[in-house]
Amino acid sequence: MKLKVLAILTLVSMLTALYMIFLYAPREALQGDAQRIFYIHVPLAISGYVSAFLLLIGVIGFFRTGDLKWDRFGETAAALGVTFISAQLITGSLWSRPIWGPWWVWDARTTLQLVLDLIFIAYFMLRSYLPDPQKRAKLSAVFGLLGMIDVPINYLSIYLVRTQHPQAVVSPGGGGVSPEMGLTLTVSFTAVGLLYAYLFNRRLAIAKVEEEVDYLEQVVLAHE
């Protein structure tokens, strides 16, 4: 029931956000229509970091309690992390091409997001080769922890490379920001946030049911 309300809210806010991004927000003077990519790019990027944080919470929760529900929590966060960061990297590339020229610029944020994406993917690859739920939870929690404490160190090293090798880095939204743009960005943030919350809760619920069904299956098999 709650999920349904959340789904409707998400849909409404997404449609509103789309309307505002393409029709309400003014055309940016320097970058043209390509600037409209930023309304989705920035919220997606933030949700990537949120995923990393939630995975860390799941890992710590699992270490403290040993409860598989924390494993499901972390796994869901990582799944959303892969999805949102991958989408965000594509939007970044499609912005970079018309504005900077190259498809891909190895600047600090892009590189960090890419590495984070790779860590999430490695996390899933590891899980897919561990059939036993308990062992999978334990080992992927260890990897998740090591991966998430990598993020700040990674950020530091990548940031240092950038500052020591100055490149043509144009900060996003080079032109002036009008109030309409600010409002559009806010609505877009809300839409992405709601979408994230909806997908997170739905996937978490599915994971829980899946575990229960697996359990039932085991019980049935045991009495065969």
Binding site: V115, A122, L126, Y129, L139, L146, G147, D150, S157
Partner: peptide
């Protein structure tokens, strides 16, 4: 530690670089 994790999988020799390379990015840089 990553090699002891990857040892639990069927494809341990392949799993190790998959796990290790993203995490050693700061060291390499």
């Amino acid at each position: 530690i990553l090699s002891t994790i990857s040892a639990n999988t069927r494809i341990k020799e392949v799993m190790l670089p998959v796990l290790q390379i993203p995490l050693t990015v700061p060291v390499i840089i």
